[in-house]
Simulated assay, not measured.
Amino acid sequence: MTAPTINGTRYPQPIDALLPAARDLDLPEGQTFPSRNRLMREFRIGAPKADDLLARLKAEAAEPVTTAAEPAATDPDPVPAVPESEPPAAEPVEITPAEPPAEVTPVGHPDTPTSRAPSRPAAVWPVVLLALPAFVAVWSGWVGLGGLTGFGIVHPLPGIWDSFSINSAITLPIGVETYGAYALYVWLSGRVPGPARRFAKWSALGSLAVGALGQVAYHLLEAAGVTVAPWWITTAVSVLPVAVLGMGAALAHLVRSHD
Rank of each mutant, 00 (worst) to 15 (best):
A137N: 12
D77M: 07
R44S: 15
A137M: 13
P48Y: 12
V104P: 00
G108C: 04
S163F: 03
A98V: 04
V93S: 00
E42Q: 14
R41C: 14
R41Q: 15
G144F: 06
G150P: 07
A123C: 05
A131Q: 15
P126M: 01
A102D: 06
V138C: 03
P76T: 09
T66V: 14
A61E: 07
A55N: 13
A72N: 03
E103S: 06
D77G: 05
F151E: 01
L148M: 08
V138A: 12
S140V: 14
L145E: 03
T67D: 06
A102M: 05
D75C: 04
S165R: 00
K58L: 00
G152Q: 12
P121C: 07
S85P: 04
P78Y: 03
T74E: 08
T96C: 01
I95W: 08
T149S: 02
A69S: 08
S163D: 06
A69H: 01
A81Y: 13
P118Q: 03
P88S: 07
G159Q: 01
D111Y: 09
D111G: 04
F135S: 12
E91D: 02
A61L: 12
V65I: 14
V93P: 04
F164Y: 12
T105Q: 09
E94Q: 10
P126F: 01
R56S: 15
K58C: 01
D75M: 11
S163N: 06
V154E: 09
G159M: 03
T96A: 01
P100C: 04
I160S: 02
A123R: 10
A47W: 14
R120N: 01
V138N: 10
A102F: 02
P78V: 00
V93Q: 09
A117G: 09
T74A: 12
E70P: 10
E63K: 15
A55F: 12
P92G: 01
A123V: 03
P121Q: 05
G152V: 03
L130F: 07
P156Y: 00
G146E: 02
V107C: 00
D77C: 04
T114F: 08
E70S: 12
P97Y: 00
W139Q: 04
A50M: 14
